[in-house]
Design a protein around this nucleic acid. Structure first.
Lengths: 109, 109
DNA sequence: TTGACGAGACACCAAATGGTGTCATATAAT
DNA sequence: ATTATATGACACCATTTGGTGTCTCGTCAA
């Protein structure tokens, strides 16, 4: 259904705080042009554009040209990989499971 | 309860595939000494040790010296930040919610 | 007590990262 | 027609990253 270009590791793409903030901004609106996104940051347009390219390579962002501006939109689905990954480790901090382990250890004695 | 040194961003710590594999290895055993972890990789001991230091700075790993070896153990709880973060965006790929949005849009008309 | 083993602490290096500024070009507005 | 805007495409730079090798020092075993 969805073709993964996936040139870039999703874990890598979300490692940068600027990129996470871009994702957050794009979650709040349908489509945002580059210049409007740039206005939210201290850094220059070129830097923001580079971050968006990285997000694009990870499949987290789509873009389309409208007139002279390039509008970006979020595609969150690659984040599912993160969710699956972290879900596996959730058992290691779940208090329920800690209590379960305690019970099991008690029974073993 | 848990004091966060948190010198290092957890998102940053899990960005590297070697470090994710270290986390995975440590999830399968109570405690593993450095030399044993190193044996699982192509790279040298120094490199593995550096990755473990980064994981330590993110609070994802604890170490203790036993004799001449340094043993590492997993502390997964900082991964909760990742889980919370990604959970927020799960609504953007949930098919149920996509259908809900469609229904809401239809009602607005 | 003499090695061998495990690891810390460097110094070092190439490549990637995250910024910058500038130039060219297409589009919109006056 | 002219000017301003939005962006892509570069070239450039400092710092970080992810690896290496070497030296030294505890610790365990013969």
């Amino acid at each position: 259904m969805s073709e993964d270009h996936q040139l870039r590791d999703v874990f890598d793409a979300i490692a940068d705080p600027t990129r996470r903030r871009l994702i957050h901004l794009l979650a709040e609106a349908e489509e945002i042009p580059l210049h409007e996104l740039t206005a939210q940051f201290q850094m220059g347009r070129t830097a923001v554009s580079k971050h968006l390219t990285i997000l694009k390579e990870a499949g987290l962002v789509l873009d389309r040209k409208v007139g002279r501006e390039t509008r970006f939109r979020l595609n969150a689905s690659p984040l599912r990989e993160i969710q699956d990954w972290v879900a596996f480790y959730s058992k290691f901090w779940s208090t329920n499971l800690l209590r379960l382990n305690q019970l099991l250890e008690e029974e073993e004695e």
